[in-house]
Design a binder for these strands. Structure first.
Length: 567
RNA sequence: UGGGGCGUCGUCUAAUGGUAGGACAGCGGCCUUUGGAGCCGUGUGUGGAGGUUCGAAUCCUCCCGCCCCAGCCA
């Protein structure tokens, strides 16, 4: 089996791939491979889902099969069509193509109902009148067996009649359920007469009020897989206990095909959460601007932040796939993002916190133009012109009146290079009444046009800059992790505290007074760029023509920041 | 506690009875018109104890630890 070319390490394993290869070699399922990604449309997809999406689509691609996209919409109380739309867009964005194979579990409500009647007819399912609480009481515990429902031995004909009445809408929610008749003493809890159908009085996003009863996941999923001819039903580890039930249903219903379930671990990322419940709370309580807030681990959030889909694909491929639970360090994702953007993002000049520089020996009305390389990693990206004049802005962080050791940037009397422009010396500092530095008086070396002096003298640093009169104002949004804790859910549980206790108050910083080079005035939303020496940024959808807004996707690796952190 | 699953550097992952290797992170250095990128160097990591074997991360036994299951959610 050849590995995907996107796998940068080449040795990250994947036990699912091995298993499928075995099946194909042994001719199981007629040698076919059909997978499916089955999201519930009750929220947005997050990076954890990307693992499942890419695994399913990639396995189908590698083995010449196909992958279905199936919305698992069996709970109308939770699901909405706006989530369907968002999920479709996110899966497509990741580069996955389901072709004609877009399905909904709700497409199968009729055949599923038929399978339920079949089970009743075989004496393998019964209508139970116990309340929710009573069912729980009869359920037993981890160590004690359950007790049979008093309705367990109901005659087949009566079960059939009651179930048909359920379908006809004759009963109130909670009044009755359909249960499989399996084994109340099983050590596998999902086998203790699991509920197959319940009554729900909620309109469904696709079937409206057509159905008063809805199948449970455990019932609908294996049978939907069978209906679609799925060969490899890949799901997460917590469903391992459900596999006996999955197999039981396939065994006892007259299905056209026998799919098999294989479980793999969920992907966890440090400094964030993958729980839809937690993510929903962040949205509902206004801690973020929405499901697509650039701080969210959702695919929509990552996309808005500027993360390329290729980075997410490479990130997953490099991770490999074993049966062990995993929590991947955020640094690993950031690495994949930088790797991708380094090769693809055009470089631009942007000053986030402007400090005014006046070049005393440069004429008032003159403008020079210097050539700047668009992407040193990609010669084909060409060059552009940068205007240069007497008054410039540089980054406030790039000047220190009293520089410590290892600060190589500008200081009084010191010379640095302005990227692509010239050498610049700081002659004096101008302060306002409160003592704050408001301006630097500098001189340039006219012989150093382009950046090098004829005498070959060296400088300690190269700074980014923009020309004051030519630069365009912009807003820049800086992001840090949404949570300060490495594993906020675990920590909250351990310490008995709230989600909000672990939010990072510095997760968003908005800079309103930035200056960007003129070529960025009409940047198109979604454009990914590197601001030289600062990081990778992407134009936000809030950007309007002439008023650019940028999101910082990720910083550049920063040796100076690291030294400062170390103290 | 009954059942299911899993234990290899800080993190992720190779080695499928034969030299414990890679990536990320960290640390040190080289190079540099991005303190970017790139390059070089840097590790007593097989949960523990026994056993089998010429040889064990790998096979066996026991122990320890972690994750999941008691929704009319998926």
């Amino acid at each position: 089996m050849t590995r995907p070319s996107s796998d940068p390490t080449g040795d990250a394993g994947n036990f699912v791939r091995e298993r499928i290869a075995d099946d194909v070699a042994a001719g199981r399922h007629g040698g076919r491979v059909v997978t499916r990604f089955p999201p519930e449309p009750n929220g947005y997809l997050h990076i954890g889902h990307s693992r499942a999406i890419l695994l399913n689509f990639e396995m189908a691609r590698e083995f010449g099969g196909r992958c279905h996209l199936r919305f698992d919409d069996t709970n109308p109380a939770a699901e909405e069509s706006r989530f369907v739309e968002a999920i479709l867009a996110d899966v497509r964005w990741l580069g996955c193509d389901w072709g004609e194979h877009l399905y909904y579990t709700s497409d199968y409500f009729e055949p599923l109902y038929g399978y339920a009647e079949e089970l009743i007819g075989k004496g393998l399912a019964y209508v139970c009148d116990l309340s929710s609480e009573q069912i729980r009481e009869h359920q037993g515990t981890l160590t004690e067996p359950g007790r049979p429902s008093p309705f367990r031995e109901r005659p087949i004909a009566e079960n059939l009649e009651l179930f048909r009445n359920m379908r006809a809408g004759a009963y109130a929610p909670g009044a009755r359920v359909l249960r499989a008749k399996i084994d109340m003493a099983s050590s596998v809890l999902p086998m203790r007469d699991p509920i197959l159908y319940r009554i729900v009085a909620q309109p469904h996003h696709r079937t409206g009020d057509a159905w008063p009863i809805y199948p449970m996941y455990d019932f609908a999923h294996p049978l939907s897989d069978a209906i679609e001819g799925i060969t490899h039903s890949l799901c997460t580890l917590e469903f391992q206990d459900h596999r006996p039930l999955y197999d039981w249903l396939i065994e006892h219903c007259s299905v056209p095909h026998r799919p098999e379930q294989t479980e793999f671990p969920r992907l966890n990322l440090s400094h964030t959460v993958m729980s839809k419940r937690w993510l929903r709370r962040l949205v509902d309580e206004g801690h973020v601007s929405g499901w697509d807030d650039p701080r969210m681990p959702t695919l929509s959030g990552l996309r808005r932040r500027g993360v390329p889909a290729a980075a997410i694909r490479n990130f997953n491929a490099a991770l490999g796939l074993t049966r062990r639970n995993l929590t991947v360090e955020l640094a690993r994702l950031e690495h994949a993002i930088r790797e991708e953007l380094n090769r693809s993002a055009p470089r631009r000049m942007a000053v986030l916190r402007p400090l005014r520089v006046v070049i005393e020996n440069f004429p008032e009305d003159e403008t020079l133009e210097f050539d700047a390389v668009n992407n040193p990693e990609d010669p084909a990206a060409g060059t552009r012109k940068l205007p240069f004049s007497r008054v410039l802005y540089i980054e406030r962080d790039d000047f220190l009146e009293d520089p410590p050791k290892k600060f190589y940037r500008l200081a009084p009397g010191r010379e640095v290079r302005l990227r692509y422009a010239c050498l610049l010396r700081c002659e004096s500092v101008v302060k306002d009444a409160s003592g704050e530095i408001v301006e630097l008086r500098c001189t340039w070396d006219p012989e150093s046009r382009g950046g090098n002096a004829p005498d070959g003298r060296k400088v300690g640093a190269t700074l980014h800059w923009v020309s004051a009169v030519h630069a365009h104002p912009a807003e820049v949004r800086l992001y840090e992790t949404l949570f300060s804790a490495e594993d906020p859910m675990r920590q909250a549980a351990a310490e008995g505290r709230e989600q909000s206790d672990y939010l990072n108050p510095a997760s968003l910083t908005v800079l309103h007074d930035c200056r960007v080079e003129p070529s960025l005035a009409d940047v198109v939303a979604g454009t990914a760029l590197q601001f030289e020496r600062l990081g990778y940024f992407a134009a936000d959808p809030d950007t309007k023509p002439g008023t650019p807004i940028f999101n910082r996707t990720v910083t550049l690796r920063d040796e100076w920041a690291k030294l400062q952190r170390r103290g």
